[in-house]
Design a protein around this nucleic acid. Structure first.
Length: 353
DNA sequence: AAAGCGGGGAT
DNA sequence: ATCCCAGCTTT
């Protein structure tokens, strides 16, 4: 066994965190944890893992759920395609494979939502298949220890790090080793200001020798943020009912629900917006701008400048829903936060009674 | 090869 | 503000 792997494994035996998906080799639980943890910190994902295991203890029970309920449980975690693909794949496994999980990388990677990383993780952790995981943690540990400055998000970099990972992995303890190197990256070889002084690998670390710890790994950045202007219309009709739409098609928040939306390309004058709202509804009793200052909701690639308009109607909305039923719909965090304050408002109490 | 897709925590 | 998190899919 090479020094690198041996040290990592020894470190792991001493410092690993007790996490619920480490107590098992049940591929359903490992799969669920891996999907939840994609681009997500353990601290953020942990409560979601607990909720899902509670509601859906087996893949068959997840498969039997409504997509809307799965998304509701996922609400707040982001990257909602993960939840849709999770549900889709649960149904595939239940119907096509009698609830039995595939036990090889080659089969796993064909499932929706499972890429190279996740297939490697499940195959190695549950079935002992010698596949290295290469996630953000592993990129960082390898780049620093071996002094590699190829960009980790370039085609050449991805190939290079994958091959390096294969070379140094400990195939005889692949289940432990894969979790160990990720845990090492998360706790010891951290992105910012790692504690190199007490690192068990400091004597052989190229980045430390060359004072390049702070500059490795190298990552090409491209982040362009798009500004969008959202106006949500909270209709309230004679019965106290409102209206929600399901987001369909491309773009953010697919299959989540939202109030009727008017998107503009600038922040409109209030009077201009009153005109726009009036022109699309016949029987308006009153329109009130909820708050003058827009809410700025920041996604990684979009900033949403958002205003909410309370639109009271004289008649009844077609396909309206009660305000009390709102909590059962999966909604973006932007709307969940609005609803929290809206529930304490005059409009809410007036319409509920 | 590049873009799109969330939300939160740390700095 | 910026970076990054147990990445995957689509264009």
């Amino acid at each position: 066994m090479n020094t690198f792997s041996k040290t990592i494994l020894h470190w792991y035996s001493k410092y690993k965190r007790p996490l619920p998906w480490r107590n098992t080799r049940d591929p359903y639980k490992v799969w669920l944890s891996e999907i939840i943890l994609q681009q997500t910190r353990v601290a953020q994902g942990l409560p979601y893992y607990q909720k899902f295991i509670e509601h859906y203890p087996t893949v068959d029970q997840l498969a039997a759920a409504e997509e809307s309920d799965v998304l509701k449980l996922w609400q707040g975690l982001g990257y909602y395609s993960r939840a849709r693909n999770l549900h889709f794949t649960a149904k595939t496994i239940t119907t096509d494979n009698n609830g039995q999980f595939p036990d090889s990388y080659e089969e796993l990677i064909q499932l929706k939502g499972i890429g190279d990383y996740t297939a490697s993780a499940i195959a190695s952790i549950c079935f002992g298949e010698a596949r290295p995981v290469v996630d953000g943690n592993v990129y960082r540990v390898l780049a620093r220890y071996f002094g590699v400055d190829l960009p980790i998000n370039s085609t050449k970099g991805i190939r290079y790090f994958k091959n390096l990972a294969i070379e140094v992995m400990e195939a005889s303890s692949i289940s432990e080793y894969n979790q160990a190197i990720m845990e090492f990256g998360a706790l010891q070889c951290t992105p910012q200001q790692p504690d190199c002084e007490h690192c068990p690998l400091n004597s052989g670390c190229m980045a430390l020798q060359q004072t390049r710890v702070a500059t490795l790994p190298v990552k090409l950045k491209k982040n362009k943020v798009k500004i969008r202007y959202f106006n949500y219309l909270i209709f309230i009709d004679q019965l106290g009912n409102t209206k929600l739409n399901k987001r369909i098609g491309k773009g953010i928040w697919q299959h989540l629900y939202e109030f009727p939306l008017i998107e503009t390309d600038t922040l409109m004058e209030e009077t201009e917006m009153y005109g726009r709202v009036s022109s699309r509804e016949e029987k308006i009793k009153d329109i009130v701008l909820w708050k003058e200052d827009p809410v700025v909701h920041k996604l990684s690639h979009q900033h949403l400048i958002t205003r909410f308009w309370i639109v009271e109607l004289k008649g009844e909305i077609k396909g309206g829903i009660t305000l009390e039923s709102l909590p059962k719909y999966p909604v973006p965090v932007l709307l969940a936060e609005f609803l929290d304050t809206f529930k304490n408002s005059y409009f809410w109490s007036k319409s509920i009674s």
